[in-house]
Amino acid sequence: MLKVEHVTKYYGTILAVDDLSFEVKKGEIFGLLGVNGAGKTTTFRMITGLLDKNSGTITLNGKPIDYSVTDKIGFLTEERSLLTKLTVKEQAIYYGVLKGMQEQDILEKLDVLLKRFHIEEYKERKIKELSKGNQQKIQFITSIINDPDLLILDEPFSGLDPINVALFMDVIKELKEKGTSIIFSTHRMEHVEMFCEKLVVLVRGKSVLSGNLKQIKKDYRKKNIHIEAEHMDLEKLKEVKGVLEVIKTETEVVVKIASEENVNDVFNYVKKCEGVTKFVVEDASLNEIFLEKVGVMYENEM
């Protein structure tokens, strides 16, 4: 289990991470969200021991993070951290041995993973000869080749097409099932919603939102109602109590309401309209929650 407690980091006089605390349990997927410069990469660097913190503690399975525990950490950096002149096999051996593995075990594991990612033919190819997407696969493979207890993924889906994003997600879920604690960052909120259980949203190094994703969404009062109807006066709909915004798309109308209590008011109006085929109440998306929380923080600081 990864435990981050009251961690603070300054770059000179600039506060990069401000009293950050969270924990990632065994077999849990944790999202670290925030805009560029929010402090995500700094947090990852402190977890991997690359940066010293000014205060606070970080432990993995109860031990402070040092070179005695880093063998059990997998780290995928935001940028491609591959030695491009090496072949895929050489690269896997290079990082594998640095993780304390034996060469034979690395090669056996590499064959399995290359097959899993459908790139077994690239084993002897140089990294620089591979496409951006395949390089990302190799980077991912080298970060999980040691069966880590903790896997840190900084923007793991960048440069990937939707099919490969799905493939990565499947592998990440498999690792979760095996008990790996996973912490990852992304700008894509839909990815977080798809498989994240807990999250922290950082704004300028400070946590502005944290906890269980389901609970966060539940606690967030605003809801969205998706309506399909033949005839509906949108101007009148906007006047209904609690309606914040009405958005018309090609196929439906999305009504944003202030709280769950306003659902009935909207329903009472809609049932009077002709040809209603859909009335679905949904929680607000994480993207909306993120935009509001981060937006408010930004506005306050401006």
């Binding site: 021991g49 780290f75 950096t77 491609r80 030695l83």
Partner: peptide, 13 residues
């Protein structure tokens, strides 16, 4: 320049 330094230094002092 390849940023592999981050992976190396996270495993070797």
């Amino acid at each position: 320049s390849t940023r592999s330094m981050e992976i190396i230094i996270s495993n070797v002092s």
